Simulated scan of single mutants.
Amino acid sequence: MKILITGSNGFIAKNLIAELHNRKYNDLLLFNRDNDLDDLNDHCKEADFVFHLAGINRPEDESEFMEGNYGLTSLLLDRLKENDNKCPVLVTSSTQAELDNPYGKSKRAGEELLFDYGRNNDVQPIVYRLPNVFGKWCKPNYNSAIATFCHNIANGLPIKVNDPNVMLKLVYIDDVINEFVNALEGNPNTVDNYGEIATIHNVKLGRIVDLIQEFKSSRDNRLIPNMADDFTKKLYSTYLSHLDSEDFSYPLEKHEDDRGSFTEFIRTVDRGQVSVNVSKPGISKGEHWHHTKNEKFLVVSGKGVIRFRKVNSEEVIEYFVSEEKFEVIDIPVGYTHNIENLGDKDMITIMWANELFDPERPDTYYLEV
């Protein structure tokens, strides 16, 4: 299947091309402003499906809106007609097509042109009036507020918010691309030839900025955002894509003593925290119990034993653990416990606790096993 993609250097096209390759669609006919019109004509002879993503949204002169959005669409459809190519055509428009501004008028004119072409040539037209699209590879300081805020905050640059109560209508790039591939495979989500993205996020600008600021702070407080919220998860992924390549890593605070070390890795608002514990050979740690706090231990390097004794009982239970067999040991409440390194090298244990450590209420009581 030969797929023509116009505007192939753009944000949406880059994501579409990557996913098409993932799904083994490799015969792509790419057209952008670096090509000449002969290339477009050749592509229109061969194409089995067209993604018309090219357009103008930040011209130097308003007249360029009509030339870039209506004119190029007209040229594309003329080339398809001249080559008697009746393949489906998917066009990205904008929700601004409903507005009476130069950009909206040019997008609406392109839509009407496509619908006329479809009726007159027995061709399936599909138009997606997209709201603000966000996600990886979007150019900051261009036409996406989210890309700009993510980039500037990630890189310590100033931002400007005129009205935090402005409501933004947003779609995530992966949701857009999934719908486009559905259309390619003959299953578009359409109403009267207008395609619809299944998931739309309506979010206030102020909340978006607050979330991005929290993402930046998470490197210091190790607090991972609530990934159960679909928008937060997508925005966090977008934010990380705007990190400078020299800023992918960040340090953690290691608490060290003669026994080894203890380092908090991840903290969450509702799923507790994850830490890394290092015990030197012969060292035993723990000797305490909890009322409500529970933990999971996973030894990933070295070998040792985890001992339990139920409070007010004399029976000691032992679990021998090592890097040879990954197994999780639950630490129930009401059992005093310790972990001892039985090897000749450092023992490394991943520890999860169901709640964040609160020095005011540690729920930790000393009692030897």
Rank of each mutant, 00 (worst) to 15 (best):
E82Y: 00
D42M: 02
R33D: 05
E111P: 01
R129G: 07
F51H: 09
N132F: 05
D100L: 11
K139I: 15
V91P: 01
S74R: 08
Y142V: 14
D34E: 10
D34Y: 06
L53P: 06
R129N: 10
S74D: 13
L130P: 01
D116C: 06
N101T: 15
G118Y: 00
F65V: 14
D84T: 11
G104Y: 01
N69R: 09
L114P: 01
L72H: 12
L75K: 03
T92P: 01
S144Q: 12
I56R: 01
R33E: 06
N120R: 14
L130R: 02
H52S: 09
M66F: 12
F65C: 11
G55A: 12
A97K: 00
T92R: 03
Y128R: 05
E111H: 02
N143D: 13
K136D: 08
F51V: 12
N101Q: 05
I146G: 09
P88E: 08
N32M: 00
L40N: 02
G55D: 11
V123Y: 05
P140W: 12
D38L: 02
T92L: 05
N120I: 00
T73H: 06
R79Q: 03
R58Q: 13
D61H: 15
S144D: 13
Y103T: 12
V50L: 11
N83H: 04
N41F: 00
G135C: 13
